[in-house]
Amino acid sequence: MAENTGGSNSQIGTVRVKRGLADMLRGGVIMDVVTADEAKIAEDSGAVAVMALERVPADIRRDGGVARMSDPSMIEGIQAAVTIPVMAKARIGHFAEAQVLESLGVDYVDESEVLTPADEAHHIDKWAFTVPFVCGATNLGEALRRISEGACLIRSKGEAGTGNIVEAVRHLRSILGDIGKLTQADSAELFDWAKRLQAPLGLVQEVAETAALPVPMFCAGGIATPADASLVMQLGAQAVFVGSGIFKSEDPAPRAKAIVEATTHYRDPSMVAKVSRGLGDAMPGLEIGELETKLAERGW
């Protein structure tokens, strides 16, 4: 069915088409939702896409146990409720979950450390899919390894479910800082960089030349306020994922809309101030040093 879109000589699942959707999401907010009602609220508030999952990261953290792909009927319920793109999460290395999500027609698969990893050595071979993938990264080497496996969108991981922005900032600064250093390295030094980053030389050379990742980079993990969104956008993220930060706050709809506006007008402090007024309590935050599990350490 999908193979015939556009008539003869058309090609689906190309890098340009996969990456292109990520390009269209730039400057926007992707919101975690667990029900069709939440998905509607997200769409009404200006989300560019929703991430359908069974529990937001804050609840996964609280409940413990193995976190898996969501029930297909729940994902379908969300697909039916909104017109914006719907993403869903598969466990790291769990290509069968990814195949199921592709068959459901989700618009992006997040191979996510928020779920319990299914493989301790291998990520999914993402080139084998028509559906595009987003993957998390804490540093440049991790980002380039995911891109070499076929990821068409990178998100800095942050520490999901904490409402604490500090890890997202650390990861963004690490990735963008190393990109800056690569552009200063001479051609001989790039071989050593590839070895240290444990990343393919070709991608390292490409980043050194273009001063950017070959795919868009968004930010995730710990965004809870409009000012958080402005901070990570100013640091160089091209869009933001908000997980627990919206639906674990006191009044989700106005906060969702405020984060959308702050992401658009991130360079205008008076606009960020304007949308930050009277939003009620943000989600309760967690100190990183007191966490039992650091989700960002999952992935290899």
Binding site: A2, T5, G6, S10, T14, V17, T83, P85, G105
Partner: peptide, 15 residues
Amino acid sequence: RRNAFGRQIASFEKE
């Protein structure tokens, strides 16, 4: 019509 060609897996390129 929005999304007339379907979801992302149906996105395509063509000359």
